[in-house]
Design a binder for these strands. Structure first.
Lengths: 337, 337
DNA sequence: CTGTTAGCGCGTTCAG
DNA sequence: CTGAACGCGCTAACAG
């Protein structure tokens, strides 16, 4: 079954040490014998055992990716980007998903899951508890966050406050004065700061323009379409006049609000402008104005930095701010009157 | 740094063999010494090295998951389900994504990626080439497909033909006679049969009802919203009358078509009924009538079977048909006149 | 019930 | 430039 390095060595009539050196492109091997070894290895279909080389070197050529969900827009795309550069460099991707809160039970992530299994870890938009963070740092493997700031480690993400401010500014610039808000973070996941950053930036922008924050025009959701629709219901059902615009903490929630508006015959953008953040795959087809970010590039960038660090370039892992861009489509316009 | 089994053995004043037995819950260890070992291990924060035990046992407690994309509805949810049961059983999940066709270059999946790294493999809705399949079987690790039939190995998925027939039947039962079709599979991925199964079932159902298949009412997409919208453009732009209903190969395409219809002021369901397959997260909020399937359960079921097989229950891996259900919402109704 | 002894397959000194 | 020998950390077979 398993053809090992000894088989190759025997067949090539050299020692296992030479095979090892030849196959890994190390110097101190004559071109002749290297060619010979390569040929024999290929012929025998030899592939080194990761377990064995892992044991010998202490490195697994595997990086862990910790995510709260894999089935959400940002994470799916980020993982895709990470996978690309990992694979390009011969690294494996070990996935750890917390799967939201299955059955209300939080699945915890512990050092033991990581111990000696991975060379580095990418943490996606996830607030780790102090305890978990401490354990992780204790293992001394390189750590990097993607999608949002995580206390105690560097990360790659967009400036969420600036993004939210831009979106809000777009609405205000259009002339809107009654702006509602569907914010994220209803679940209040520990240390996950993105929803709060966007919320605060919105409120600051509104205050800066001298506009009122109306509680009855504010609702929270957990970043999903369904929650966006539910939040919209609460705002639309509030007594009195409706806002002329809605700032949503994520495109999914914005889209949910649009569905609800459509259900009620509220015309967009004539009666209501809606803006989100993300540039979800559905946003362009739906004509949603939004702040675009590219999670796959966040993933690529983060993975590249982590690999550089693993390759020995200490200090490669640092904070990186990714670009975002306002994409004006058909869901926003100047208010009616 | 790494506290090894020897450290535990020394500290507990027993042999490494005893430590190994105690920690793995094997018999032939007195409760007293087992407790002692457990205590010491906990105190020292000992965690076995996967590489070492992998080398010794030949098993990695890791299963590979091969997907065409991770950032698509079906796959993201299926992976989530797989991850759950794997984690519950102490297994790791090694992810291999083909990432669609990055830069037009197909990333190939080879035996070497798997060699000695995983104990089993779950292939998600992916047509492997004959060559790849042969290589994989050659490694003799258990193989199981999820989401669609793959020649040469068992799988868990829904009866796509029946699902498509049910959706089509719903339209016909409502009285529609002019039914358009947005089908999947434009990319024609090798061996990926799901789009074709749904397409054929639709055409058979139409023929069975004595209804005409009009080429100008047919368009193809690759299962995404954007493509659904594009396909709808082609159908809506066709000269002559429009169909009164549209059967779509996936919810994403159905949703794309709905966006395009809305853009043109075509009212749903008054002027056009739309039905899809999947029950995508956006479908309920959008009011889309569809055939619901639950990919996370497909993943859970497949992972469970694979684990049973790995646990020694030969024959555990077999074909399983998962349920689907017609969910009537607001996108379908009887035709106007 | 427990300890001793071999490897598992590969990387890595250190001689030559 | 090459080979022999040891060790990585753990499990498995065999004694005791």
């Amino acid at each position: 079954m398993g053809v090992s390095i000894d088989d190759v060595a025997a067949q090539a009539q050299v020692s296992t040490a030479t095979v090892s050196r030849a196959l890994r492109g190390l110097p101190r091997v004559s071109e002749a014998t290297r060619a010979k070894v390569l040929a024999v290895a290929a012929e025998l279909g030899y592939v080194p055992s990761p377990s064995a080389s892992g044991l010998a070197t202490g490195r697994t050529r595997t990086v862990g990716v910790l995510v709260p969900f894999v089935d959400r827009w940002y994470f799916g795309h980020a993982i895709e980007g990470i996978d690309q550069v990992l694979r390009e460099n011969g690294y494996n991707l070990l996935l750890f998903s917390l799967g939201g809160y299955v059955h209300g039970q939080k699945r915890s992530f512990t050092e033991s899951m990581v111990r000696k299994q991975i060379d580095g870890l990418l943490v996606l938009s996830l607030g780790l508890s102090e305890e978990e963070l401490r354990q992780l740092h204790h293992t001394d493997i390189p750590l990097l966050s993607v999608g949002g700031p995580v206390a105690g480690c560097h990360g790659v993400y967009i400036d969420d406050a600036a993004a939210a401010a831009t979106a809000t500014g777009h609405l205000i610039g259009l002339g809107h004065r009654g702006v509602g808000h569907i914010r994220g973070g209803i679940q209040d996941e520990k240390n996950f700061k993105v929803p709060a950053l966007r919320t605060v930036a919105f409120e600051t922008a509104m205050a800066g323009a001298g506009l009122e924050l109306r509680p009855d025009w504010t609702a929270a959701g957990d970043f999903t379409v369904a929650d966006g629709a539910r939040a919209a219901v609460r705002i639309f059902d509030a007594p009195g006049e409706l806002p002329t615009a809605l700032f949503c903490g994520s495109d999914e929630m914005a889209l949910g609000a649009m569905f609800e508006a459509q259900r009620r015959g509220i015309r967009i953008p004539e009666e209501l402008s809606v803006v989100g953040i993300d540039d979800h795959d559905f946003s362009a087809p739906a004509g949603l104005t939004t702040i675009a970010q590219e999670p796959w590039n966040h993933g690529r960038s983060a993975a590249a930095m982590l690999l550089a660090e693993l390759a020995g370039a200490a200090g490669s892992v640092r904070d990186v701010l990714m670009p975002f861009e306002l994409k004006i489509r058909h869901s926003t316009a100047a208010p009616r009157s």
